[in-house]
Amino acid sequence: MLRDLLSRWPVVRQIQNRDWKATGETAMSGQTRDLRARNVGAEVTRSICPYCGVGCGQLVFHKDNELINIEGDPDSPISRGRLCPKGAATYQLHTVDSRLLKVRYRRPYGADWEDLDLETAMDMVADRLWESRERSFVEKQDGEWVMQTKAIGHLGGATLDNEENYLIKKLFAGGLGMVCVSNQARI
């Protein structure tokens, strides 16, 4: 019994195995010996980080139609396995438990939030956007055609990808005449 107890003591194992740095088997418990990376057995798909124009490479690990992990691609000639904080948080962005999956709305002067269906919320946004544009749209200024509104602006967030930002710019600037269009990613 005492021998069994001593053999489990890391210092005794270190002496017996002549592992003076304690970096090998002597440093491991049964629990650490059985640890495996969460990516083991997962399929890997190469991708590109969607959050800016740099195009850093990402490895997307998935198994049984479930996202396992996302990390930098060491074979990417652009990023060589490195990701900025936004790119490094791609996995958490998609899997965090606190991610809202419904539209929350608080009425003007209201104190409580309520759930809205997506169709109702989109109609409200579209109606308010169009009403503001109609009220503030300027066709000519100082005899020149400007076809713009300065009463509406758009600031895109860091979770928008390049394609979404392109479409937003085309719709808001070209279609609606907004001149105040920017994005957090450029800051």
Rank of each mutant, 00 (worst) to 15 (best):
M1R: 13
L2D: 14
L5T: 10
R8H: 14
R8T: 11
W9F: 15
W9T: 11
P10W: 14
R18K: 13
K21W: 06
A22Y: 02
A22C: 09
G30T: 09
R33V: 06
D34Q: 15
D34L: 15
L35H: 11
R38E: 12
N39W: 05
V40M: 08
G41A: 06
A42W: 00
V44Q: 08
R46Y: 08
S47P: 06
C49Y: 03
C49A: 13
C56R: 07
Q58F: 01
L59Q: 10
L59T: 00
L59Y: 03
L59W: 05
H62Q: 10
K63Y: 06
K63G: 05
K63H: 10
D64W: 07
N65A: 15
E66W: 04
L67T: 08
L67N: 08
I68P: 01
I70P: 04
E71H: 08
G72C: 09
D73W: 09
D73G: 08
P74S: 02
P77K: 11
P77I: 00
I78W: 08
I78G: 11
I78S: 11
S79G: 02
R80C: 07
R82S: 05
R82T: 07
C84D: 06
G87K: 10
A89K: 14
A89Q: 11
Y91W: 03
L93W: 08
T95Y: 01
V96R: 11
V103M: 12
V103C: 11
R106Q: 14
R107F: 04
P108T: 07
A111H: 02
A111N: 03
E114I: 10
L116H: 05
D117R: 14
A121F: 03
A121P: 02
M122T: 07
M124W: 01
M124K: 11
V125D: 01
D127T: 11
R128P: 00
S132F: 04
R133Q: 08
E134G: 02
R135V: 00
R135S: 10
S136H: 15
F137A: 12
E139P: 03
G143V: 03
G143D: 02
V146F: 05
V146G: 02
M147P: 00
A151G: 04
A151M: 02
A151K: 09
I152S: 00
I152N: 03
H154N: 04
G156R: 06
D161P: 05
E164P: 01
E164Q: 15
N165R: 15
Y166P: 01
L167W: 15
L167H: 14
K169A: 05
K169N: 07
K170M: 11
K170S: 03
A173D: 07
G175F: 13
G175Y: 08
L176I: 05
V179P: 00
Q184T: 06
